[in-house]
Design a protein around this nucleic acid. Structure first.
Length: 559
RNA sequence: UGGGGCGUCGCCAAGUGGUAAGGCAGUGGAUUUUGAUUCCACCAUGCGGAGGUUCGAAUCCUCCCGCCCCAGCCA
């Protein structure tokens, strides 16, 4: 029951505020919005904001709008507008009919700017960008009033209209709010409301030659849409007085309130649009959806289920303290989600040939393997066993250390769902490298149990030569091995081993037939998903995340 | 040195005057035809520091320290 209520979703200070506002009657409904600027792809950080905004709307019976903050045509593109919508939908959220654009409000915003001018609260400034910068003062010194600050309303109105008409070149003039050049809050030192930009806008084309600044567009857009809680990140805290100033000085249809939370940071990851864009542009990754990217598109291609992303966001919480979440938290959420749903399959990544000497040549048989050990409803499939098969190279050691209990000369192990086999002979090539194992099997152990009750210390996975399908497997590792990579020189910090491509992997038949987009578990190894680069004869798999590997820790420590 | 925030376990994070939730990681152990999963146990005499108020403080007061953001005609 609690699962259905907002209480289960986890409480945080923003949800507390919303609940209080509802309880006190401050608001009768909840309307939030996710306001991306279409200048890049959505990433992990956005997932937090999306889940917060859409999640709150869902939990409190309100609605959440998807609104593009498209006020800077020099950086925005239609490709991003499309990609962002795809990604939000993929994450599992629906904005219904509320797809909006700040650009939808340009006409209204322009009219409000005129209102401000008439009220003597805004003026056209002819100073150059440099002059404005200098006269703004510094963190510790107040700014100076612009010489154009006291122009007449008529002149301001005329100049502003001519700015819109395209009479002046970029940078020639700006419209500024008349607030307080000596404010301790620099955002209040006569902030720019409109700038001249002769640029093609993805939505409005060349209709406008002036564009509103974020500060003049955001709050009013919220008001137009009757947003009740405008949730943004901490760096906008300083803008709240300006957000309020605009709404308090304009005849807006509603009065939204802004609340700020700490943006997400994750170890071994860089979440700045500048870096991500550069990663793509420079070719360090294959594209916005490269599985190593922290973009939603990249995570999706890597096989991360949207549910895992939502679970991750729920786990990290929402607060105001700057923090950096361990990437291990994310991996955990992915494993947790996939463990419950992923079908189990067998795949040998680095094959070592095994010949069962006492198994009749030319004979094969089918054995039953369950698709999910904890969910019988997932059914089972048959896999082929035969005289020749492949096992993982890592599952054999000629001279094993004490704790290693997989296959070794003279040792017996279980082939999952198959038989017990014992290694009789090790065959090496001219270089001394092990190329084949000669083993014997115990016909009495079919299915994996010995009638005499004897135990075996390990169960290993395998694929018979009879049904093996060669595949390519891409193993992805951290894009940055440093837990705290610096955005400034990200290129130099890219992990050279972030991608390892394996050819000649041997996977069971079921994997070749499967066209599913859901990740599967390669038993004992990890979760993998079929990549779109797959071809009919050759499947390609991306590793989503490896299984927790206690042995690696033991082995690593012993070595 | 101006303004705005934030400091609770290695990493997230509850707590809002009544004697430190939970999760991740880690460590032991049980179960196991995945060295996975699952299960059990352990893991802050302490809440940035120092004073103070109080029967009692992470929570209130004072001072101090540290970290983050702001000087785009970016968002």
């Amino acid at each position: 029951m609690t699962d259905e209520t907002g209480s289960e979703a986890g409480r945080d200070f923003i949800r507390d505020i919303v609940a209080d506002d509802l309880a006190s009657g401050t608001t009768t409904g909840v309307v939030t919005r996710f306001p991306p600027e279409p200048n890049g792809y959505l990433h992990l950080g956005h997932a937090k904001s999306i889940c917060l905004n859409f999640g709150i709307a869902e939990e409190f019976g309100g609605r959440c709008h998807l609104r593009f903050d498209d006020t800077n045509p020099t950086k925005e593109e239609q490709e991003y507008i499309d990609a962002i919508q795809r990604d939000v939908r993929w994450l599992g959220f629906d904005w219904g009919t509320h797809l909006h654009f700040a650009s939808d409000y340009f006409e209204q915003l322009y009219a409000w700017a005129q209102d401000l001018i008439r009220a003597g609260k805004a003026y056209v400034d002819d100073q150059s960008q440099e002059e404005i910068r200098v006269s703004r003062g510094t963190l510790t010194e107040p700014g100076r009033n612009s010489p154009y600050r006291d122009r007449s309303v008529a002149e301001n109105l005329d100049l502003f209209a001519r700015m819109r008409a395209g009479e002046f070149p970029n940078g020639a003039r700006v419209l500024r709010a008349k607030i307080d050049m000596s404010s301790g809050n620099i955002n209040l030192r006569d902030p720019v409301l409109y700038r001249i930009l002769h640029a093609h806008h993805p939505r409005t084309g060349t209709a406008w030659s002036i564009y509103p600044s974020y500060d003049f567009a955001h709050g009013q857009s919220d008001a137009i849409e009757h947003i009740t809680h405008s949730i943004c990140t901490l760096e906008f805290e300083d803008h709240r007085p300006l957000y309020d100033w605009c709404l308090d000085n304009l005849p807006v249809p509603s009065r939204p309130r802004q609340y700020e939370f700490a943006r997400l940071n994750v170890t071994h990851t860089l979440l700045s649009k500048r870096v991500l864009t550069e990663l793509v542009r420079s070719g360090h990754v294959s594209g916005w959806d490269d599985p190593r990217m922290p973009t939603l598109a990249g995570l999706q291609r890597r096989g991360v289920p949207a549910a895992a992303l939502r679970e991750f966001v729920k786990r990290i919480g929402v607060a105001k303290a700057n923090s950096t979440v361990d990437i291990g938290m994310f991996d955990f959420a992915v494993r947790e989600t996939l463990n419950k749903s992923a079908l189990r399959r067998m795949a040998v990544l680095r094959p070592l040939k095994v010949v069962i000497e006492n198994y009749p040549e030319g004979q094969t048989e089918e054995v039953e393997a369950v698709n999910h050990p904890d969910d019988a409803a997932q059914g089972s499939r048959r896999i082929t066993f035969g005289r020749e098969l492949y096992i993982e190279r890592d599952d054999f050691m000629e001279d094993p250390p004490k704790k290693f209990f997989r296959l070794a000369p003279g040792r017996e192990v279980r082939l999952r769902y198959g038989y017990f086999i014992t290694c009789r002979e090790v065959i090496k090539d001219a270089n001394g490298e092990v190329v084949e194992l000669r083993c014997t099997y115990d016909p009495q152990t079919r299915g994996g149990n010995a009638p005499d009750g004897r135990k075996v210390k390990a169960t290993i996975h395998w694929v018979s030569a009879a049904e093996a399908v060669p595949a390519e497997v891409r193993l992805y590792n951290l894009l940055f091995s440093d837990p705290a990579p610096e955005a400034a020189n990200f290129a130099a910090q890219i992990n050279p081993e972030s991608l390892e491509v394996l050819q000649g992997c041997m996977v069971e038949r079921a994997l070749a037939a499967d066209n599913a987009h859901d990740a599967v578990q390669f038993e004992r190894q990890g979760y993998f998903v079929r990549d779109r680069d797959s071809t009919p004869g050759k499947p390609v798999f991306n590793r989503t995340v490896g299984l927790k590997d206690t042995w690696a820790k033991v082995a690593g420590g012993a070595a």
